[in-house]
Amino acid sequence: MSDHVVETKGVTRTFQMGDVSVHALRGVDLCIQPGEFTAVAGPSGSGKTTLFNLIGGLDEPTEGSVFVDGKPLEGMNPRMRARLRLDKIGFVFQAYNLIPVLTAYENVEYPLILKKVPGDERLKRVEALLGAVGLEDMMHRRPNQMSGGQQQRVAIARALVCDPVMVLADEPTANVDSETGQALLDLMRRLNTENNLTFLFSTHDPMVMSSARRLIRLKDGRIDSDVRQNGDESGAPVPAGA
């Protein structure tokens, strides 16, 4: 197994908008190690979401390579990428993106069903996770019966239920108030600390940036800065291929 949960080598992503080429990413080299709690910050259009999409296997780089848990995404077909996401990556979206017709319990259970995990095992894991995110009393509520913060906690539980190597959280606190946002951050930080689970955020929320132990700033599709903070002892910055 690789030392890196994520590694990007010279990743470039260019979008063709009519006659104009838009360079969303310009040669990004990045390594994320197990247990990191890293925020990727930058203004709109800096390339955060594009980088996340590439790491999540939702998009393909124009140039360069992306490795997740040591495996190159290059050459994987959509089915293999879907399987990789199911096995290795937990997604938390800005707008929660729960399945509206499923209850909190069923939303969390959903990836386990995709993985064909037996029913009793699913029950154990879903109940434990919903308990861990403080929603044991709301298991049977549907998303429209829950607040934004509660929905995001369900989304976090869903992201964690398959024991991923990493959680990709795209602006997870953008749609909640600051108090709820702080509570969500505390929850993710706790999960990071207790389970050594890797979190990678995209954000422009100062609160998330200040909570991260590593802060990567993107500007115009390039890494502008990459610093360790909040007592991170692994040294900074970490170059690609380290």
């Binding site: 089915r79 997604f91 995709l114």
Partner: peptide, 16 residues
Amino acid sequence: TREFGVRLAVGTRPRS
């Protein structure tokens, strides 16, 4: 559409 996208993102197969 977005819901289908999210389901694909979390690992649902297109066939499903």
